[in-house]
């Protein structure tokens, strides 16, 4: 796969950055505006999917190979789990203790700002990592298999 024509390549090399930024925006402002980890992750993955479609598989193999996507996927899930567990260190005896909000932010930050809502933006970030990486992997795996060809190992 060598990718598409020069027009597509030129335009998508501009657009991919915008899509990626938009994904980051949706993720970071997930607790304030519509969107969140899942939607942000899907947009992040779609920027890489655009890259693959426009430039061919070799480019994404250098940027985000399958093994790295797999690791990011696991890190996202573990991060989410860690956020739910860290509350135990901060004196709570239950899962999903919003320790940042309770301990630090309640006095200082005001609502409806970027730095508010405690652990929720962190959870959004973890979900975006998980969803983005796994959706991109789904795309890669589906595009890898062809009838008659042996499956590629990672």
């Amino acid at each position: 796969m060598n990718g598409m024509t020069i027009i597509v390549k030129n335009i998508s090399s501009w657009i991919k950055i915008l899509i990626f930024l938009f994904g980051i925006y949706i993720t970071l402002f997930g607790h304030l505006t519509p969107g969140g980890g899942f939607a942000g992750g899907v947009i992040l993955a779609s920027s890489y999917i655009l890259l693959t479609l426009a430039f061919g598989k070799r480019v994404t193999d250098e940027n985000l190979p399958l093994w790295l996507a797999s690791r990011l996927d696991c890190i996202g899930a573990l991060l989410f789990l860690a956020i739910s567990l860290v509350g135990f260190l901060f004196g709570a005896s239950f899962f999903f203790y919003n320790f940042i909000q309770q301990k630090y932010l309640a006095q200082h930050a005001s609502d409806f700002h970027l730095v508010s809502a405690g652990t929720i933006p962190l959870s959004n970030f973890a979900i975006a990592l998980k969803v983005g990486a796994s959706l991109f992997m789904v795309f890669l795996v589906l595009s890898t298999f062809r009838p008659g060809e042996p499956a590629q190992q990672e």
Binding site: W67, S70, R71, C74, I75, A77, L78, L81, F94
Partner: peptide
């Protein structure tokens, strides 16, 4: 034992294992 451990422990192990390859 807090009940979510029953879900959290195998879930954590399930995502730690693929990291090793």
């Amino acid at each position: 034992i807090p009940l979510p451990w029953f879900v959290a422990i195998p879930l954590a192990a399930a995502f730690v294992l693929p990291m090793f390859g």
